[in-house]
Write a protein that binds this DNA or RNA. Structure first.
Lengths: 144, 144
DNA sequence: TATGAAGTTGATATTCATTATCATGATGAA
DNA sequence: TTCATCATGATAATGAATATCAACTTCATA
């Protein structure tokens, strides 16, 4: 999915909800797309402020909420209590390897694990909705 | 592991840290052990207050922290933002199936998934520390 | 069993992330 | 251009968790 696609998804979502465009929303989306992934709200705030200093903190949260609603963003509540937001390509689910020293995120996917998870849902009579797998460890460069 | 074992672990931990026993700590541990698992701090607070009304909120948090430190308790930060504490039998790691309607927790374990996770750590050169797998869905009784 | 150093407590203040409020400003269909 | 509606920034408010502090316990020692 290109940035253009993402922007269109956002526009369409605003349209269906009778919401309006705004410079702030576009600016936030742009920085969100351009930046590395897995930002905190505060980190995104700092990024956006560089180009659009007038943007307020509340608008960051409001826009992140919209992005989550339209599927472009995923909210990650980590075990250390922080919340991070990552750009989500709907077509590409993944889990995370997280370095507990430097905070590095690696996106991983193991089809076999995914399959076994569905088997677990099934075994307990659950209707699967989503899952959350975070693998915490120490990355190669931190482990020297 | 019996409750008696757990209490001994807690006592030993206090001893090694030169910490003291107290009625409050024992009362909290007892309720924590007796109750169902996966309590919020507030739920535990309410439980404890029934028997020991004078116990303050801060002491609940302080004691939960100690219990986590000595391995009797695991803190779960859930995707809905709530934090729950579960009694942890060190010998028995498990993951969770969580019903998004009624909040039911089912403890599950798939040795094959565990094995594949270690393979993932390995494939990316990570030193494994821990992981976190939450499966969200709708349980049988909520799906009727 | 009395002492006292050190740890513990409850109440409360504080912090921090997030959300709600509200007066003012921006958007866009007509 | 109008104007109903929505969005915004500033700020207040919330809620969970932690820090502070004076008063109270604990427990090793005398």
């Amino acid at each position: 999915m290109t940035n253009r696609d993402a922007i269109e998804i956002f526009h369409n979502y605003l349209a269906t909800k009778n919401l309006k465009h705004s410079e702030q929303r576009m600016s936030i989306l742009q920085d969100f797309l351009d930046s590395g992934k897995h930002l905190t709200a505060h980190e995104l705030f700092v990024l956006v402020q560089k180009k659009t200093p007038s943007v307020g903190f509340a608008t960051i949260y409001r826009t992140l909420k919209l992005l989550c609603e339209c599927g472009l963003c995923r909210e990650l509540k980590l075990d250390d209590g922080t919340t991070r937001y990552e750009y989500q390509d709907e077509t590409q689910h993944h889990d995370h390897l997280i370095c507990t020293k430097c905070g590095k995120f690696v996106e991983v996917l193991d089809p076999e694990i995914e399959r076994l998870q569905d088997k677990l849902f099934d075994a307990y009579g659950f209707l699967p909705q989503r899952h959350r797998l975070d693998l915490y460890g120490i990355c190669k460069s931190c482990n020297k």
